[in-house]
């Protein structure tokens, strides 16, 4: 039974067919499967599968990334409401677009994947100041700050990632909080993330999910060690 559900769910996600994905999930609930099992045995493996596919699949495009991330996020949100105990969160991320940047869609893919991977995401929205990024990360006890920038001047701007790095340094937070950047300018110049003071970057929103999970683990191991 579980194999059929996984197969049907993966197919629906591959076709970016949200209605069918929900039909599969509702069918599984009706058959007595728990929300916890749906998340850990169906949804999370599907997200991980998607992450590994994206590297190999030249046909997968941005529109499909948006849709699959959205399905993952919506299904997860619905399932979380049905959890008997609050789920164990593996970490927290504050995310937003750099100062001066209003392109909010890129980070949406990241958020969708992270939610499904049980990472708590605090969305700061668009045009976020460096101060706000750092303050929010401290307030929410987040391990990672994610900064999206879609234009060269917001990626490289002095009030963007560079200032976040400066603040982290000044406040002695560099071991506790890591910074990841993403967006078109970083794809054109794979070294750019270093120049703006980020710890790492990701080529696309789906891969960013995995990179962030790794960063969280890194920070946590560092803090406990």
């Amino acid at each position: 039974m579980i194999e059929d559900i996984i197969k049907a769910y993966n197919e629906a996600v591959y076709e970016t067919d949200k209605d069918t994905a929900f039909e599969v999930v509702n069918g599984a609930l009706a058959q007595g499967m728990s929300a916890e099992d749906i998340i850990f045995q169906v949804v999370i493996p599907a997200v991980e599968e998607m992450m590994s596919l994206i590297v190999k699949d030249p046909d997968a495009n941005l529109a499909q990334h948006f849709m699959t991330a959205q399905i993952a996020a919506e299904v997860t949100e619905k399932m979380l409401l049905l959890f008997k105990f609050p789920p164990e969160i593996i970490g927290r991320v504050v995310i937003g677009t750099a100062a001066g940047d209003l392109h909010s869609l890129g980070k949406r893919i990241v958020m969708g994947c992270l939610k499904a991977l049980m990472v708590e995401v605090i969305d700061l929205g668009v045009n976020v100041t460096a101060e706000k990024f750092v303050d929010a990360a401290v307030a929410h006890d987040a391990q990672v700050i994610g900064i999206s920038a879609m234009m060269v001047h917001t990626a490289m701007g002095e009030h963007g990632c560079a200032e976040v790095r400066k603040l982290l340094k000044e406040r002695g937070l560099e071991d506790k909080i890591k910074v990841i950047v993403g967006g078109a300018p970083y794809r054109y110049d794979a070294e750019l993330y270093k120049n703006v003071g980020a710890d790492t970057w990701a080529n696309d929103g789906v891969s960013a999910g995995k990179v962030i999970v790794d960063l969280i683990k890194e920070v946590k191991s560092h803090v406990t060690a």
Partner: peptide
């Protein structure tokens, strides 16, 4: 030839 998802 093309699916509604935009995939061939």
């Amino acid at each position: 030839v093309l699916k509604p998802s935009g995939r061939f």
